[in-house]
């Protein structure tokens, strides 16, 4: 058995070498493989964003401009009629996109900042800090978040700032849980241990070793949390304790015009009016969910 294998060079070894692609190539490949539902989702989200950004340009009237006729029927002047105190419904819908989405987005960002940051620290630290934070989050999560939010809003009052803060803090518990659990899986990897053995500080380990490897589930979660926050804010506004008038908001628009539904037999358009903002909410969350669903399927590697 003196014979050596013919020629052996480490550089010539072939493993599961994947073809390297540029960002642009990968992006276009990704887009090509997107199913219709994801396409639908992306188009809807893009439209909403455009409407939110250019609300001032698109809206026919001012956000809080009051016209003489309340509950005006659909017409050329007021495409979707006017509301209970005579504001143009279409205008309110357009501004509502900006307000509701903006507040939900700010809340979600804040909640990821708090929950994600603490979750990462807890996952690396794994000692009393992790124990303390985890138990605290368990307790917070034992109170249903809508109920908790209602309670806190009754104390702090329904301003936009307190709305954002309260919901962000409550929602960050879920972000904390997810971040911690995925980060713990990464934190036990040998490359994290290798970095610690090298003497790297907490900052490096968090930013360079762990964060890049937990991005996909966090991105997906961002979409889901955004939907959840968005629905919570809409529900609170609907209940009258969320975004307060005169700020245009979809949740409170539904409530304000709900009584029109009973006239469905006489004027179908009137009955649809309160459903428009509700449909706007539903359409956006469905769209985001479609995108997230596709993204999760892409990244989870689950074939079945």
């Amino acid at each position: 058995m003196s014979e050596q294998p013919e020629t052996y060079a480490a550089a010539a070894e072939v493993g599961a070498v994947r073809k390297r692609r540029t960002r642009l190539e990968r992006f276009s490949l990704l887009m090509k493989s997107a199913p219709p539902s994801a396409w639908f989702g992306m188009i809807v989200v893009a439209l909403y964003i455009l409407v939110a950004i250019f609300a001032d340009v698109i809206a026919p009237y001012g956000e809080a401009e009051i016209h003489p006729v309340p509950f005006a029927p659909w017409s050329d002047e007021f495409i979707f009629g006017t509301d209970q105190i005579g504001r143009d419904v279409l205008t309110r819908l357009i501004y509502g996109a900006r307000n509701t989405m903006g507040i939900a987005l700010a809340t979600t960002f804040l909640s990821f900042l708090i929950g994600g940051g603490l979750g990462l620290v807890a996952a690396i630290n794994r000692s009393w800090l992790d124990q303390g934070l985890s138990r605290f989050v368990d307790v917070l999560m034992a109170i249903p978040s809508l109920i908790f939010a209602l309670m806190l809003l009754s104390i702090f009052g329904s301003t936009i700032t307190s709305l954002i803060l309260i919901i962000a803090v409550l929602d960050s518990t879920r972000v904390f849980r997810l971040t911690r659990s995925v980060a713990v899986n990464v934190a036990v990897m040998d490359y994290v241990e290798a970095a610690r053995l090298r003497g790297e500080g907490l900052g490096w380990v968090m930013r360079r070793e762990i964060l890049p490897n937990i991005m996909p589930p966090l991105v997906a979660e961002f979409g889901l949390r955004f939907c959840f926050v968005f629905l919570t804010i809409a529900a609170l506004s609907f209940l009258g304790v969320g975004i307060q008038p005169p700020t245009a908001d979809w949740g409170s628009m539904v409530r304000a015009n709900a009584s029109l539904i009973q006239f469905a037999k006489y004027d179908m358009t009137a009955a649809i009016t309160p459903l428009l903002p509700a449909a706007a909410i539903a359409l956006l969350t469905v769209a985001v969910n479609f995108i997230v669903d596709w993204f999760l399927q892409k990244t989870s590697g689950l074939r079945e």
Binding site: A10, A11, E13, V14, G15, V17, R20
Partner: peptide
């Protein structure tokens, strides 16, 4: 020193064989 060359500089671990890793 480990019998590889500079063409490996830009590769990610997933683009290496087990021995190269």
């Amino acid at each position: 020193m480990i019998e590889l060359d500079d063409s490996f500089m830009d590769r990610l671990p997933s683009e290496l064989s087990g021995g190269q890793k």
